[in-house]
Design a binder for these strands. Structure first.
Lengths: 242, 242
DNA sequence: TGCGGAACTATGTCTAGACTAATCCAAGTG
DNA sequence: CACTTGGATTAGTCTAGACATAGTTCCGCA
């Protein structure tokens, strides 16, 4: 009964992860220290080496450990600060905040690519793509402003889609799986249009997100999202599975 | 000879990851479709089930697949958009840009916690912590401004008497391992002090990062980093090991 | 008809053993 | 002394088989 091994089967790897993390946090193993090799730990925890391997790989992915063949595993000197964050679908985000979601397309037309957007997409300037601007609202108040370019060549079914009535955001998520994505954040002073559409004043600092996706046929879409003033995006810990 | 299995041993799981991803991108398997179960795929790829399991778990972590016991694996309807970004150490970031790094501590002293910071840390308002402000420079130009609060109680092994004389940065290095971290981005108009220290004008939109870390003893530190105007932080794809 | 439980099935996790591959290290060579 | 070569060590990956667990489905009973 004193034996509260907690998880007799299932979850041994997680137990090892926790225990190793504890030893690092509590300085039993200090930064730069070599830790016992997989075989030793397997004996200590009474598990198969593969289980130890799984646990340590997870910690290495998190940046807590440095692993090298022959050299062994050591506690990372500069624990890399990683964070993962998930981009929620706007509607869910708004509804989760208990607000009523609505969406308005401001403009949609085919236009030649300006230079800066062309550079993002890696397409020649002047090429004609679909350009649309839309605002997402929560309880009638502007939540975010979206300025998007879509490349129909990368999404064949797109020609038939009518973004005046469909939410482009959601259509793309569901119908255009991507292979690679670029994402970045920056801050910009609201220009006149931003200010008007977000119902704020020109000059207001806005958090801006740029996102571009590609599949095997080329760039799919690039979007500039300007959030309402004061918006905060948060990222969680670097926890994968577990 | 037509057999260009590429990776005869080592890397079979990765091969499966790539192949499954390809089938999804090319719509062989569409959103919501049930895909063959692990046993079948193991036969198809001529590997052990554990190998298929590893591959599919990775894709599920990325959000491309939804897996449930008994119900099987299906292509996610709303591929979750995840991104991981790594916060580089400032010095490395600056030097990688080919600039000379320097660093100046503007102020370091003990101060009572203001309400907003106390809330971040989960400590009572008015508690005395170490407060420091510093600027990081690249080639003499301000790169980022750092406003940090440090909780010495999170480092038990340090005599509190010693602590007050320690360089705060050094202290942080010694206390790097943390259990949990919070990270967020927002945009703020530069106030007078921001503007002065970053050599820009008040009102300029600044990208601001807040970061707080905890270990088992409580909050370690919280920091507000204001980046130079125009700074962009980028996040990579959701690729784990590969 | 409705409900509880039994049977089933696909994934989750682990094991013991094998082989591979990256390195570090030391010994030998020019 | 620098360079090459071979051996030893440690992580990386895979396999075949086993059992655990969570859902689904369906059947019998009230």
């Amino acid at each position: 009964m004193t034996d509260r091994q907690a998880a007799p089967n299932s979850r041994k790897a997680q137990h090892i992860v926790n225990e190793v993390r504890r030893r690092i946090i509590e300085r039993e193993w200090r930064q730069g220290d070599r830790i016992p090799d997989e075989a030793d730990l397997a004996v200590e925890f009474d598990v198969a080496r593969a289980t130890v391997n799984k646990a340590l790989q997870l910690l290495a992915d998190e940046g807590l450990l440095d692993r090298r063949r022959r050299a062994g595993t050591r506690v990372a000197v500069d624990p890399v600060r990683k964070a993962t964050f998930t981009i929620a679908i706007v509607r869910e985000q708004v509804e989760q905040a208990g607000m009523a979601y609505s969406y308005r397309v401001i403009a949609q037309r085919r236009s030649p690519l300006p230079a800066d957007i062309a550079a993002r997409l890696g397409l020649p300037e002047g090429r004609t793509l679909v350009h649309m601007r839309a605002v997402h609202y929560g309880d009638g108040k502007p939540f975010q402003l979206e300025d998007r370019w879509i490349n129909p060549h990368a999404a064949p079914e797109l020609e038939s889609a009518d973004f005046w009535h469909l939410n482009a955001n959601e259509w793309l998520v569901r119908n255009a799986p991507y292979l690679r994505a670029d994402l970045s954040f920056s801050a910009e002073n609201a220009n006149r249009r931003d200010a008007r559409l977000l119902q704020t004043q020109a000059g207001q600092a806005l958090l801006v997100m740029h996102r571009t996706t590609w599949n095997d046929l080329g760039p799919i879409t690039t979007v500039r999202v300007a959030f309402q003033p004061g918006h905060v995006v948060g990222a969680g810990n670097t926890q994968s599975r577990g």
